[in-house]
C-alpha cells in the first residue's frame, strides 16, 4: 500500500515533467519558426550590420536552432529563462516579480467563488424544484456565459467611473512603497484595488462549484442513508449540512485545485481590463511587442502553475476519496 503510493506519486510527477518538457519544446519551436527576424522590433534602422550582428550574438540567435534549443533547455533546468529582448534583463526576474500579484488575484477570487458556490449549491439543492433554484441556475449559467472582460467593463463603468468607489487600474496607489509582501497583503489600499478584478473573476468562477455542488447534493440526497435519516426525523437542514454536504464537497475541493491552474491562464483578460500588474498582462504585452523570451517565460510559468495544480488535484482526489485510493489515477 505505502509502496504503491510512492510509485504512483513518482510516476505522476514524471508525467508532469514530461508535459512541461513538451510544452517548452513546442513553444520554443513555435516562436523560432515564426517568419522574420525575431529581433526586428528591436533593431533600430540606423544600426550598422555589425551592431545588428552583435545584438543577435548577445541573445544567442546567431547559433543553429538545435544548439539554441539545447542551450535553452540547459538554462531552464538551472532556472534561467534567458533575457528579455525588450527589458534587456533576465526573464526570470521579470516574471517572478509579477507572479505573486497573479496568485493573489487568483486565490482571492477562487476563495470567494468557491465559498459562494458551495453555499449557493447547497441552497439550490435544498430548494430543488423551486423557482429559486430555477432562477439561481439561470443566473449562474448567465455569469458563466458572459465574457469576463465585458463584465469587467461594466463593473468599471459603474463602480469606478460613475460612482468612483474603487480605483480603475493597478494594484496600489501612486507612490506606495511596501517594506515587504506582508505589508502589502495587510494594507487596505491593496485590497481596495483587488475588489473589482476579483469580483469579475469570482462572478465567472462561482458557476462551476455551484452547479457541481448542487448536482452532487441531489445525488447524495437519493442515497439510502439520507432517506434513513429522514425517517429518523432529522431536520432537513441538518441532513443537508451535516450529511449530504460533507459528501458532496469532495469533488468540489479537487475541482478547486484544478481551477487554480485554469484561472491562472484565464486571468489574462481580466488583468488587461484592470491593468493588474500580473503574469497575464505581461504575457499579452510581451506577445504584442514580439518579446519572445519574455512571452515564452511567462507562458512557461503559467504552464508550471497549471501542471502543478493538476498534480495536486489528482493527489487530493486520491487522498480524500477513500473509494478510489491513491494507487488509481483519478478520472476527471
Amino acid at each position: 500500500m505505502q509502496r504503491s503510493v510512492v510509485v504512483y506519486l513518482v510516476g505522476r510527477i514524471a508525467q508532469s515533467l514530461l508535459v512541461l518538457w513538451v510544452v517548452v519544446t513546442f513553444l520554443f519551436f513555435l516562436f523560432r519558426l515564426a517568419p522574420g527576424n525575431p529581433l526586428v522590433a528591436y533593431i533600430d534602422p540606423t544600426f550598422t550590420e555589425e551592431q545588428q550582428q552583435a545584438l543577435m550574438r548577445q541573445f544567442g540567435l546567431d547559433k543553429p536552432l538545435s544548439v539554441q534549443y539545447l542551450v535553452y533547455l540547459g538554462n531552464l533546468v538551472q532556472g534561467e529563462l534567458g533575457d528579455s529582448f525588450f527589458y534587456r534583463s533576465p526573464v526570470i526576474e521579470l516574471v517572478m516579480e509579477v507572479l505573486p500579484n497573479t496568485l493573489y488575484l487568483t486565490f482571492t477570487s477562487l476563495l470567494v467563488a468557491y465559498g459562494v458556490g458551495v453555499v449557493g449549491g447547497i441552497l439550490l439543492a435544498w430548494r430543488r424544484g423551486s423557482r429559486l433554484e430555477q432562477m439561481g441556475v439561470t443566473f449562474t449559467l448567465m455569469t458563466r456565459s458572459a465574457p469576463e472582460f465585458w463584465v469587467g467593463m461594466i463593473l468599471l463603468t459603474v463602480f469606478a467611473f460613475n460612482l468612483g468607489w474603487f480605483p480603475s487600474s493597478g494594484a496600489t496607489s501612486p507612490g506606495t512603497l511596501y517594506a515587504s509582501e506582508w505589508d502589502k497583503l495587510t494594507s487596505w489600499d491593496f485590497w481596495r484595488h483587488m475588489v473589482l478584478p476579483a469580483t469579475t473573476l469570482a462572478l465567472y468562477l462561482h458557476g462551476l462549484p455551484l452547479l457541481l455542488m448542487r448536482s452532487n447534493m441531489l445525488e447524495v440526497l437519493d442515497e439510502d442513508y439520507i432517506t434513513m435519516g429522514r425517517f429518523m426525523g432529522y431536520s432537513e437542514l441538518r441532513l443537508m449540512v451535516r450529511h449530504a454536504a460533507r459528501n458532496a464537497l469532495l469533488p468540489v475541493i479537487t475541482a478547486m485545485a484544478l481551477g487554480v491552474g485554469y484561472s491562472v491562464g484565464g486571468n489574462v483578460v481580466v488583468e488587461n481590463v484592470f491593468g493588474w500588474p500580473g503574469l497575464g498582462r505581461m504575457l499579452v504585452r510581451a506577445v504584442a511587442a514580439s518579446d519572445y523570451p519574455l512571452a515564452q517565460g511567462a507562458f512557461f510559468l503559467i504552464a508550471v502553475v497549471m501542471v502543478t495544480m493538476n498534480l495536486i488535484a489528482d493527489v487530493l482526489y486520491g487522498v480524500l476519496d477513500p473509494r478510489i485510493g491513491a494507487g488509481q489515477q483519478a478520472q476527471h
Binding site: 512541461l20 513555435l30 485554469y262 491562464g265 484565464g266 483578460v269 499579452v284 506577445v287 497549471m306
Partner: peptide, 10 residues
Amino acid sequence: GVPFLPLVIV
C-alpha cells in the same frame, strides 16, 4: 497541461 487562452494568443 497547456494553458488554453495563452496558447490561442501566441
